[in-house]
Simulated scan of single mutants.
Amino acid sequence: MIFFRRLSLATAWQESCWRQFIKKSGRLEPLMSHAGAIGIMQVNPNVWRGFYEIPALRNDISYNASAGNEILHHYLTDYVLIKNEHKETNSFDHLARLTYVAYNGCPAHFERYRKKSASKGIYQIASAFWQKVPSFKNKRSTGGSWLL
Rank of each mutant, 00 (worst) to 15 (best):
F3L: 12
F4K: 11
R6H: 13
L9Y: 02
A10G: 11
T11C: 13
T11S: 14
W13D: 13
E15S: 10
S16P: 05
W18Y: 13
I22K: 14
K23H: 07
R27G: 01
L28F: 14
P30R: 07
M32Y: 02
S33M: 05
H34L: 10
A35K: 15
G36C: 03
A37H: 00
G39A: 07
G39S: 08
I40W: 00
M41Q: 05
Q42P: 03
Q42E: 06
N44S: 08
P45Y: 00
P45W: 00
V47L: 09
V47R: 02
V47Q: 03
F51H: 14
E53Y: 03
P55Q: 06
P55M: 03
A56P: 01
A56M: 11
N59G: 05
D60C: 13
I61K: 07
I61T: 05
I61F: 01
S62H: 11
Y63S: 07
N64G: 09
N64E: 09
N64S: 12
L72N: 03
L76I: 13
T77M: 13
T77L: 12
T77C: 12
V80S: 02
L81P: 06
E85G: 05
T89Q: 12
T89S: 15
T89R: 14
Y100R: 06
Y103C: 08
C106R: 07
H109E: 03
H109N: 14
E111Q: 13
R112I: 00
R112S: 13
Y113M: 09
R114W: 06
G121A: 13
I122K: 00
Y123R: 15
Y123V: 04
S127G: 11
F129P: 05
F129C: 08
Q131H: 12
Q131A: 14
Q131I: 07
K132L: 15
P134L: 11
P134S: 12
P134F: 10
N138E: 15
K139C: 07
R140S: 15
R140P: 02
S141E: 06
S141W: 06
S141I: 05
G143F: 11
W146Y: 09
L148V: 10
L148E: 09
